[in-house]
C-alpha cells in the first residue's frame, strides 16, 4: 500500500493532466487505470481523504453544487512551482532561517557590481 504522500502526488498528476473537474469515483478509476499493471486499487474513501488533505493544503478546489462533489487543481504545476521559487528567493522574510540556499541573495541593487566581479573572475 502506497503512502498518503505518494497518493497525493498521483492524484495531483491525474488532476494536472486533464482539464475537467473529476469526482472521487472518477479519480479512483483514473488511478486504477494509471497503475493498471501494478494491480493496485485504492478505495474511494482513501481518495476522499487524500482530496481533503490536498484541499487543506491549497492544491485542490471542490465544487459543491451537485453531488458527487467534483475536484479540480487550483493552479497548474508550473504556477505552483513558480510560486514556490518566488518564496524561496524572497529574502525579506524569516525564510533565511528555515532554508539554506547554495548561494545567498540580496534584494537590493548590486547587480552591476556583481556582474563586473563575475566577469573579472571568469577572465582571470
Amino acid at each position: 500500500m502506497a503512502s498518503l504522500g505518494d497518493l497525493e502526488r498521483s492524484v495531483m498528476e491525474v488532476l494536472w493532466s486533464g482539464d475537467a473537474a473529476l469526482s472521487a469515483n472518477e479519480l479512483r478509476d483514473a488511478l486504477a487505470m494509471r497503475d493498471g499493471e501494478s494491480g493496485r486499487t485504492v478505495a474511494t474513501t482513501t481518495v476522499l481523504t487524500v482530496l481533503s488533505r490536498l484541499e487543506r493544503k491549497g492544491f485542490v478546489s471542490r465544487t459543491r453544487e451537485h453531488r458527487p462533489h467534483r475536484y479540480q487543481a487550483l493552479l497548474s504545476r508550473e504556477e505552483h512551482t513558480a510560486e514556490l521559487m518566488h518564496e524561496v528567493l524572497d529574502r525579506s522574510s524569516d525564510r533565511d532561517a528555515a532554508l539554506a540556499r547554495f548561494v545567498g541573495t540580496v534584494s537590493d541593487g548590486e547587480a552591476a557590481t556583481l556582474r563586473r566581479l563575475l566577469d573579472e573572475l571568469v577572465r582571470r
Binding site: H86, V103, G104, T105, G109, E110, T113, L114, L117
Partner: peptide, 15 residues
C-alpha cells in the same frame, strides 16, 4: 536567469 524575480546574489559572500 532568475526570470521575473529580481533577486541578486549576495556579492560579498560569493566573492
Amino acid at each position: 536567469g532568475y526570470g521575473d524575480d529580481t533577486v541578486i546574489a549576495d556579492a560579498d559572500m560569493l566573492t
